[in-house]
Design a protein around this nucleic acid. Structure first.
Lengths: 112, 112
DNA sequence: TCAATATATATGAAATATCGCATATATGAA
DNA sequence: TTCATATATGCGATATTTCATATATATTGA
């Protein structure tokens, strides 16, 4: 992961919020990100594909859902950059986190 | 300084190297950056203007030369991001630093 | 098998960023 | 003032990025 690739990945609002949301929550599926970001499915999916190709995210499918998390082999310094950004820019994803909580029928919840 | 603005500033090779060089050396003028980056004057100058407008750099004129340094009011977390990036991507500016050393008649040196 | 839901990708248009060249401005020396 | 050096910027051409729409694939349950 070279620095330029990292910063190009972070230089878009959708991708930045996506990474901060996943940094905050650990793991999220596409439909949760759609709710948190209030964006269309193709848009969210395309940005996730970019982050996956860049090596920032890895995905695992569980049934219908594909969950995304920070790539386990992400270098330490990249993690620290994400953590610093997350800790000092919580306002950036505050709305998104609230929308997540309000989601009915969260994937994986027992109620459905 | 919001996170998105920071990362957009870092998402270009010329600007990233410029910031890492200034992080390494503390202060550099335009002609030193031209030598280190091996780029044309208008190109270097234009990217410096962007970094200045974004609040990442501040400049001071000393005679004919304009020196650029990290903006004194840059938030701590931005500094830490730059430091982390610098410490873990030294190869990125190695050539540039060597070219700097080889510069004859460095601005501010006593020999001219 | 079919239908419904979740996710991925292709395509072309629109917006944005970058670059090269020419030129403008500022400073210092003669 | 005039010249030389250092730096900044306006502008058109080009490259890159992003988006919306349509469509394709995968999984589950009937």
């Amino acid at each position: 992961m070279d620095a330029l690739a990292l910063f190009k990945s972070l230089a878009d609002e959708t991708r930045l919020k996506t990474l901060l949301l996943i940094t905050a929550k650990g793991e999220l599926c596409v439909c949760e990100l759609m709710a948190a970001l209030q964006d269309t499915q193709p848009k969210v999916s395309r940005h996730l594909a970019q982050l996956r190709k860049a090596g920032l995210l890895s995905d695992r499918r569980q049934g219908q859902w594909v969950y995304y998390n920070l790539h386990p082999e992400l270098p330490e310094w990249c993690l620290r950059v994400l953590q610093q950004t997350h800790l000092n820019n919580q306002a950036c994803i505050r709305d998104g986190l609230q929308l997540l909580e309000k989601m009915p029928n969260r994937p994986g919840s027992e109620c459905c």
